[in-house]
Design a protein around this nucleic acid. Structure first.
Lengths: 148, 148
DNA sequence: TATTGTTATACTCTATAACTATA
DNA sequence: TATAGTTATAGAGTATAACAATA
């Protein structure tokens, strides 16, 4: 553990950084138990309500399109997603979940949710609402900055 | 961007997950501008106030010791860290920052701090304190869970 | 015997540059 | 010409298993 005691008062930046590692480790553990990487799990999550092409996926993930080709290759080889022809553009494809992929996405989400809820179990209902609201503001600012 | 509007009310778990990606992307961008990976940057950060052996580093990073050997190899090849003999144990080594590594760690921290402060610039001082405090509770719970 | 660290090996993830096919 | 996607290549990150040296 860190030299700072667990109850040392963290400044906001430290708290954001440490919580980001904590959450990522949680997600990594869940993904690993299902034998996928955190990126693969994220890919499945994105596809739950979208059927994007490679370029749109690359944009969403912040990766180069060639990286996404490989990601999609491996997930397809495992039967989690499918490439489907794009009816409107002969050059393009649409990436979609298979039934297996959708099931895994659902299970993984439930598990992450359960783990993260345990981490906030020490807060009162009001505190949890407040935390969600404040974090939501930060996330909004970040999304706005990304579009700049 | 996500189909949910930027000001949609996020539930706590979603807010934690999204903020973790946001913070990681911020750190990744800073690290990248200095031509190191996020793990390398994290390694430097850990070494700022410690001189651990490979096993302790592996524990800290949540990685296998063999992974850490490689990480340390590459950072050492770039002149950012050094392996030093452990005076008390002939099998062990101590990993420490070089002057270059310490300088980079400081610069990167200042840059991450500046980026993340911008993300919370829309909050009042009181809100920032509250967010830091609530997030600190979550982080503490996570550290406790890790020791379990 | 147990512990510390490295090596060998095999994947995954990622980017850059060059390519193919379609628009 | 421009765009969507793939391929070739190279390097980083990661784990497992086997190993060497020291405790």
């Amino acid at each position: 553990m860190d030299p700072e005691s667990a109850h040392e008062r963290l400044d906001l930046v430290d708290a954001l950084v440490q919580s980001s590692f904590l959450v990522q480790e949680s997600m990594r553990g869940v993904a690993r138990r299902h034998d996928v990487s955190i990126v693969q799990a994220r890919l499945l999550g994105i596809l739950r309500d979208r059927e994007p092409g490679i370029l749109a996926l690359a944009e969403h993930l912040g990766l180069d399109k060639s990286s996404v080709t490989g990601l999609v290759d491996r997930a397809e080889a495992r039967g989690l997603i499918e490439r489907r022809p794009d009816p409107d553009d002969g050059r393009a494809i649409r990436v979609g979940l298979t039934a297996d992929g959708r099931a895994l996405a659902g299970t993984a989400e439930r598990e992450v949710r359960a783990e993260l809820q345990r981490l906030s179990a020490g807060l009162t209902e009001a505190q949890r609402d407040q935390l969600a609201s404040l974090l939501g503001e930060v996330v909004s600012a970040g999304q706005a900055a990304r579009l700049r």
